[in-house]
């Protein structure tokens, strides 16, 4: 199952099913915690991150994976991250949110995802690549003994641990404890959801670990998968693990929505929603292409590495989201 198309498909099916059941959308999570004073989804996301923080470390210690933090390009993560954050509000969902909602029959999600794929691909490999290059080259840390990290010529992307020269285990445990303290010692909003946030969070974390083991080079992602689905369909490039994972998410969410009678072809009556989906999808795709990942690649999968790139990108996803929400809905 390692690195194979079927492995990607199975992980994607599980992830899509779980996303639909747990309603895990990071656009909602980030917005709700600030503007609705509702931390249900936010806590679910952080629970998954805490599980992965310990889980990835454990898997690396056991030799099942090598930790591969994302490349650190500060300007790219700041500008791309902010663009992504703004885009997800306009598109009505984050990268994983629009992907799983295609499976629920959401017409706007299909539009947003298409423009997401086009602009992410253009920023990474296509006509917008020269602009992406303007943000600079990755900053790395030289490690004589990379240990649990995947190194390229002795170079590793910076993490809190390797930057400060602390054992990654210590950083992981402290970070996970801080998250747990927040999760269990602060007040949680209540809602009647099909899956409790603790259960949803733990299961998403476990799928993240399975994804890392299966893909080997990284945990879950969305951006690379959408680019691959388009590129492999339009050129003679082959489909890959992450392309199949994204395809699996759509099918997994579709199966879940069918079983629990939540599938319906949905069209907004407000024409503005379609324009927002195009602009939002494009902005989000470009942002993720530049920043080197989306809310899954950087937030869900990258933050557990305590990668500086992912922490910075995530901070700007959040700021971009809050800014655009305030602009569109928050000023009343």
């Amino acid at each position: 199952m390692q690195g194979t198309l079927i492995g990607g498909l199975i992980v994607g099916l599980l992830f899509g099913f779980l996303l639909q059941r747990s309603r895990m959308c990071f656009n909602s999570a980030i917005r709700d915690v600030r503007y609705f004073k509702d931390n249900w989804l936010w806590k679910q996301g952080l629970m998954a991150i805490a599980v992965e923080t310990i889980g990835f470390q454990l898997m690396a210690a056991l030799g099942a994976i090598k930790l591969n933090p994302s490349a650190f390009i500060p300007a790219a993560q700041i500008v791309g991250g902010f663009a992504f954050g703004m885009g997800m509000v306009l598109a009505g969902g984050c990268a994983s949110g629009v992907t799983y909602r295609i499976g629920e029959g959401n017409a706007v999600a299909i539009i947003a995802a298409t423009f997401y794929a086009l602009f992410a691909g253009a920023a990474r490999n296509g006509k917008l690549k020269s602009i992406t290059a303007l943000f600079g080259k990755p900053i790395t840390v030289t490690m004589e003994n990379p240990g649990v990290y995947a190194a390229k010529d002795g170079q590793v992307a910076p993490t809190v641990a390797n930057l400060l020269g602390i054992d990654p285990w210590i950083v992981a445990i402290v970070f996970a404890l801080i998250i747990f303290a927040y999760l269990f010692f602060t007040k949680t909003s209540q809602r009647k959801a099909p899956m409790h946030w603790t259960v949803g969070g733990i299961l998403i974390g476990l799928v993240g670990m399975l994804g890392y083991w299966s893909q080997q080079t990284y945990s879950l992602g969305i951006t690379g998968g959408w680019i691959n689905l388009f590129t492999a369909t339009l050129t003679d490039a082959p489909y890959n693990w992450i392309g199949m994972e994204v395809f699996g998410i759509i099918i997994g969410a579709f199966i879940s929505a069918l079983i629990f009678k939540e599938f319906k072809i949905r069209f907004p009556k407000d024409p503005k929603a379609y324009a927002y989906a195009v602009i939002g999808g494009a902005l989000m795709g470009w942002g993720a292409g530049v920043a080197g990942g989306c809310n899954i690649g950087h937030f869900l999968s990258g933050v557990p590495h305590l990668a500086i790139s992912s922490l910075l990108a995530t901070a700007f996803f959040i700021l971009g989201n809050w800014f655009m929400y305030w602009l569109l809905y928050g000023r009343d």
Partner: peptide, 20 residues
């Protein structure tokens, strides 16, 4: 409020606006 078809978070935002 007929919010059928509308995308996230429009139904929530419009409900809140109306309630106010």
């Amino acid at each position: 409020l007929d919010m059928r078809g509308e995308v996230c978070p429009v139904p929530d935002v419009e409900t809140r606006r109306k309630l106010k």
